[in-house]
Design a binder for these strands. Sequence first.
DNA 1: TCCCAGGCAAGGC
DNA 2: GCCTTGCATGGG
Length: 263
Amino acid sequence: MDNNTIVVDKSMLNVRDTLECGQFFRYIDNGTHYTVHSLDKTAYLYDNGNSVVIENEDKEYFRNFFDLNTDYEPIKTALYDKPLMREAIDNAPALRILRQDPFETVIDFIISANNHIPRIKSIIERICIGGNFPTLDSLAELPYEFYQKLGAGYRDSYLYETVQKLRKEPDFLQNIKLLDTANAQRALTTLKGIGPKVADCILLFGYYRMDVFPVDTWIKKVYADIFPSGSSNPREMRKQLIETYGNYSGYAQQYLFYNKRGN
DNA sequence: TCCCAGGCAAGGC
DNA sequence: GCCTTGCATGGG
């Protein structure tokens, strides 16, 4: 194996479940393999019997990206006896939470609001140039007309305004790391197009914060399964779900979301 | 076709 | 503060 190859046992990484579970959009199913784009980097994932082979250009980047330094066994063990988790974990036992770039996650999940995953993917594709995600500075150079041509609907102005604000405050996303989760969520929701749910997705997928619980249409169904006569207020649902699943809420949410949505 | 999607902003109260 | 309403677009 050369220096740019990672080999992972399939019991630790299920490629399909991890890429297609809704946390990530820039992958291509080529039939024989998956192509993954993150920022300006590319990896190719091949099935090799009982292992996954990841051919890539930056081994450290993708070891971190696929969260390969985290042992999921204690996490799954701790969650296994909690409501609906047995079925959800058994549905995708080698699903991992990706460690994505915060800026890319901000853009992706502004687009995700009230949108379908296939369409989210195609809009993001039109933002990228040659498979590379644009930098904040290069996006900020583009006129509003560029955003109007993305087919993003009313989200075009959210994208434009958020990009302009982030360029004026270059440390904004870096500073999120310094805040506790409540204040981080509050700060993110000052950006156009980011409400409580999108902020939670950004914190979970872009900052690897596990004490969040994005409540979307699917998680509302999950909540109703657990609490048949519970609240109809998303903020209250989030609170109860975090109380139920604790410090592993982020992991729990993703297993539950993927299981409920179907695959 | 028609419904709906990993919700949000704005306005009314 | 909380609740309601309107919302561009296109995939299934």
